[in-house]
Amino acid sequence: KELVLALYDYQEKSPREVTMKKGDILTLLNSTNKDWWKVEVNGRQGAVPAAYVKKL
């Protein structure tokens, strides 16, 4: 499985998103959308802005 690093804090704004903190390591589930990537963090799945994460 592919991992990404959170470059910034992000507070979810809808139920389809997830909150992450700078430095979090997230499991990347889907990166086909260039703006929003689906990730899993702390057992929750949701979208985060692609510009806020970097593939490891």
Rank of each mutant, 00 (worst) to 15 (best):
K1H: 13
L3E: 07
T19H: 05
K1F: 14
S14Y: 07
Y10G: 00
S31G: 12
T27G: 05
L28N: 00
L56Q: 05
V18L: 14
V39M: 01
T19A: 06
K13L: 10
D9W: 05
N33A: 09
Q11G: 07
D35K: 13
L28P: 00
G46W: 07
R44E: 05
K54E: 13
K34Q: 12
E12D: 05
V39W: 01
Y8V: 11
V4W: 07
N42C: 12
L5Y: 11
R44N: 06
A51H: 13
Y52W: 07
L26C: 11
S31L: 05
P15N: 12
A50E: 04
Q11M: 13
Y8D: 08
P49A: 02
W36I: 04
A6K: 00
R16C: 15
P49W: 04
Y10V: 02
L3V: 09
G43L: 05
S31Q: 12
G43T: 05
K34A: 13
L56W: 09
L26F: 07
Q45V: 15
D35Y: 15
D35M: 12
S14F: 07
D24M: 13
R44Q: 08
N42V: 05
K55A: 09
K55R: 13
E12Y: 05
Y8P: 01
G46Q: 04
A47C: 15
K13G: 09
V48A: 03
K13H: 09
E17R: 05
T32H: 11
K13E: 09
V4F: 06
K38S: 13
K21M: 10
S14C: 10
K22A: 13
K21G: 04
W36Q: 02
N42S: 09
D35G: 10
S31W: 09
V53Q: 01
A47S: 14
D24V: 04
K55I: 14
A50S: 12
L3M: 12
S14I: 04
V48E: 00
L26K: 00
T27M: 12
N42I: 03
E12G: 15
G43K: 04
E40G: 05
V18W: 09
L56T: 07
L26R: 00
T27W: 12
L3F: 15
N33K: 08
M20L: 09
K54R: 13
W36A: 03
E40I: 09
V41S: 14
D35A: 10
E40T: 06
P49V: 03
K55Q: 09
A51L: 12
P15H: 11
G46K: 05
Q45W: 08
N30P: 03
Q45I: 15
I25D: 00
E2N: 11
Y8N: 08
